[in-house]
Design a protein around this nucleic acid. Structure first.
Lengths: 306, 306
DNA sequence: TGAGGGCAGAACATGATGTTATGAACCGAC
DNA sequence: GTCGGTTCATAACATCATGTTCTGCCCTCA
């Protein structure tokens, strides 16, 4: 089998018309190429060049071979471009899954940051309900999934990148708005927006009140933290949600306060244990950690470093 | 630029799914491939594989690269086949020019021999009048031209591969048929078939009679030796031609005898000095020399080795 | 927990490729 | 014809990629 070097040198000799010319083209010395061509001729089994009138003359066989070699040479040249495009993430589709709260706050921020760093990347963001996380990860539909609840599976490996506290949110004209830190008893005095049983938020809130030995009044019941905040925004009561749901200016009419003794929602990145991560996905992890760090700097009372 | 070896190894690792498997496929040891892959990763600028669960897992980037690499790999594999085809002369068109007499005797025999040795070769035979030999050679229309007359040109190099004597041919019932060797005077007594002035045959015959101080009777006049023989065959007189024209069973009704003191027609192969000869053309030269040798063995009295 | 397989590092051998120095053949100019 | 310039080939040596063996670590699986 011919080596790429042989193909390259043969190509250069054919194009330049002489060994010396090829040596100049390739920035190497001439004797090496003479030897390589000679060796190549012994490999292919026929003469490629004849020394005529003090120069090289390509045989008709060499001309036929050149037609084939040129195609390979072009392709290999194109390969370099492909490598650059792949390295730059160009044309790469990064599929990220996320649970609703981080999927509307932290993850979009990280994706925006990533888009700036790697302009060729196309991002696809899937907001996943809890019960779909496993399917997406195991089927490889998304390279990674970001959640604020733990997820255990032998084929999934997880990394915690930070946490958000359990916070309560209510209208700015709510009586609790005067307090800076709020305890369980304060909340119990008002009606809360509860979650469907079994959801991470429900479990977190149940545990909170169970520890305090208090039973709150249920003013409303929802599936998503977003909806809970929407209810609170319309004055229905106090929403108890993770800090990510109310990050930034998502609900400008709500006042948000940490809950004393409230638990933590851990932000985790989950990946398939047996599938390699793309460079783009690695870059996304970094961006996500940076977004987390910036968010902590903005509201240190609500968020916690890993 | 990636080397073909790197492409080959990467391909094998992707196909076999492990470095060890690739090493077995390529019949080399595993550590070398590990090192090569590592080096390759530093060249392309992104990770190709990750060690996961004790094995290698290809990154999405590696999968994208594989699509390109596979094409090159296939092409290079095809190159080997092309080389074999070119080496076998398959699809090669060998264009040979020849002056009329050898073009109807020696050259067809050589081409037939060549066709047996290199079945894929297509032969093209052009019978050339003297004044077209130069044009065909210099324009590269035929790689080589075989003549029985000398040809001088600074851009043409010639090789003599044998010679044929000047012979005379007449009907088997002709009075001369009793003689085994025939002299100039014998011929002059009968009418001869002459050639147009300036042709090699005319010059040769003129010189013959001039040396002997004899003027023959002209019974007919022709351009080609073939025509001269045709006249002789119909009883018009004695044809004086080169030995090649009457080789084999071309004119079964003619008796052929060498002429004492007759000159030699030298068979020469002419090639462009600056164009390389194909392997097929080289093989043809050999076949032509063999055909010449066989012809000498058949009729040693008429033909001469170089 | 131990056996087996797969990967990676170290140390060394070898072959491909590159270098310089030199000579032979050829061309074109004089 | 001779001379200078160009081209290719060879020799001797340097260097780097590639291959080898030995070994250790890590993972999986029974």
């Amino acid at each position: 089998m011919l080596s790429l070097r042989q193909i390259e040198v043969f190509h250069a000799v054919m194009v330049s018309g002489s060994v010396s010319g090829a040596a100049r083209m390739l920035n190497v010395s001439q004797p090496g190429l003479s030897r390589l061509i000679k060796y190549m001729e012994s490999r292919v089994g026929f003469r490629l060049f004849e020394r005529r009138a003090g120069r090289l003359a390509a045989t008709p066989e060499a001309h036929r071979l050149f037609l084939e070699v040129d195609l390979i040479y072009q392709r290999v040249g194109g390969l370099d471009q492909s490598i650059r495009r792949i390295a730059g993430g160009e044309g790469h589709e990064l599929a990220v899954g996320a649970s609703p709260s981080v999927g509307r706050s932290l993850v979009p921020r990280a994706l925006a940051e990533l888009a700036g760093a790697m302009p060729g990347v196309t991002a696809r963001l899937e907001i996943l309900p809890m019960n779909q996380v496993q399917d997406y990860l195991l089927a490889g539909a998304t390279e990674q999934v970001v959640t604020i609840f733990p997820f255990e599976h032998p084929l999934v490996e997880s990394e915690t990148i930070g946490a958000g506290r359990l916070v309560c949110a209510f209208r700015r004209d709510h009586p609790l708005a005067e307090r800076t830190e709020i305890g369980v008893e304060d909340i119990a005095a008002h009606g809360i927006v509860a979650f469907e049983p079994g959801s991470p938020h429900a479990r977190m809130i149940d545990a909170l009140f169970a520890r305090a030995g208090v039973t709150p009044r249920i003013a409303g019941k929802v599936r998503f933290a977003q909806t809970a905040c929407a209810l609170a925004e319309s004055g229905l009561g106090v929403a108890l949600v993770d800090a990510f749901t109310v990050m930034g200016k998502a609900f400008p009419d709500l006042a948000v306060r940490p809950i004393a003794g409230g638990g933590l929602f851990h932000v985790e990145i989950h990946r398939h244990r047996h599938l390699a991560v793309s460079a783009v996905a690695s870059r996304f992890s970094i961006a996500l950690k940076e977004a987390m760090a910036r968010a902590i700097a903005e509201t240190p009372s609500m968020l916690v470093a890993p």
